[in-house]
């Protein structure tokens, strides 16, 4: 068990290192560099360009620069944004908080809903309720986020007028203000992954319902409700936990689109802006943060599944 956790943690660190290398190499491969992007038209003047490169240390070898960058990273220093000319930590920090507010709201509302619906649908397999919900889920899964976002804005903001179409809060607004701005973006974000988790839970519950131990419980005379609660659900939900973690991590890719669609001041919109501004150090930092979140989400899900699974928990090494 202990060795297993240690192994997972080690693998997570190696993954992060690989991500850092890939991000760095990716940015290196792009035509031009930070200075050509920053100077824009001024870059044709060689002495200005060279001056800038000297100032930013771009004349050193790529390997040298990678280790300098990675060394700073290890100390929590993400570098300095060129466009905004401020430490990246200060730019990213509050926006990361905003994104987390959005993501956590989406997850807290969505995951229990997805699991609950998945179980309910599975227990009413092939009946009208199942067919309606499962088909809706399939449709929701296939709709791109920007379509969902547009539809929701159209319905709730324009036709019904229940909320503002876009978020007007500043990036440093108080958490509560932002929380009130989250419903539409959160629903958009949640819709796709709720559908995913629902379908997964449904098939897992149906599989488990066919297991011998369910039949055995029935043969013991256990009432049906208790069979579902004690025998079916613990064994059906368990295998879905790592996949739920993965789905939630994958939700981050949706953040970029959803935040842009709703003008939500989070890290996803920042990423889009950073790319538009060709603020390469910022792009690097954000990509790395996405990687970090992805890796830690899957790690947490794995560890949670391990802690809940007696088979893994009590394995002797």
């Amino acid at each position: 068990m202990f060795a297993l956790i240690l192994g997972r943690l080690g693998a997570a660190w190696i993954t992060l290192l690989v991500i850092a290398v890939v991000v760095f190499v990716g940015v290196e491969l792009m035509p031009g560099d930070a200075c050509t992007a920053l100077l824009g038209r001024d870059a044709v003047r060689v002495e200005v360009l060279e001056n800038c490169r000297d100032r930013m240390g771009l004349n050193r070898s790529p390997v040298e620069r990678f280790f300098a960058w990675a060394g700073d990273l290890a100390q929590g220093d993400l570098g300095v944004s060129m466009k905004r000319e401020r430490p990246i930590v200060d730019i990213v920090g509050p926006r990361l908080r905003n994104t987390l507010i959005l993501a956590v709201a989406a997850a807290l509302a969505g995951v229990p809903l997805a699991i609950g619906l998945g179980v309910m649908v599975a227990l009413r397999r092939e009946r009208p309720f199942d067919i309606i919900v499962s088909t809706t889920a399939l449709v929701a899964m296939t709709m791109p986020e920007f379509v969902v976002a547009s539809l929701l804005i159209l319905i709730f903001a324009i036709w019904l007028g229940w909320s503002a179409g876009v978020v007007t809060a500043a990036y440093d607004a108080p958490a509560l203000t932002l929380l009130f701005a989250t419903p539409l973006p959160a629903v958009t974000l949640a819709l796709v992954y709720v559908a995913h988790i629902l379908r997964m839970v449904r098939s897992s519950v149906i599989d488990t319902a066919g297991a011998d131990f369910i039949l055995m419980a029935r043969m013991k005379g256990v009432p049906e409700r208790r069979i579902v609660r004690r025998h079916l659900l613990p064994n059906a939900i368990l295998p879905t936990i790592p996949v739920i973690g993965l789905t939630l991590a994958w939700l981050l890719s949706g953040v970029v689109i959803v935040e842009s669609a709703f003008n939500y001041p989070g890290i996803g919109r920042l990423a889009v802006n950073a790319v538009a501004d060709r603020d390469l150090p910022l792009v690097q930092a954000i990509t790395l943060i996405f990687g970090l979140i992805y890796v830690s989400m899957t790690l947490i899900a794995d560890l949670l599944a391990m802690a809940l699974n007696p088979r893994l928990r009590t394995r002797r090494l």
């Binding site: 131990f213 419980a217 007696p310």
Partner: peptide, 10 residues
């Protein structure tokens, strides 16, 4: 098969 008929989580 008792291995299949006992609930693994209990």
């Amino acid at each position: 098969s008792a291995a299949m008929a006992l609930t693994p989580s209990m």
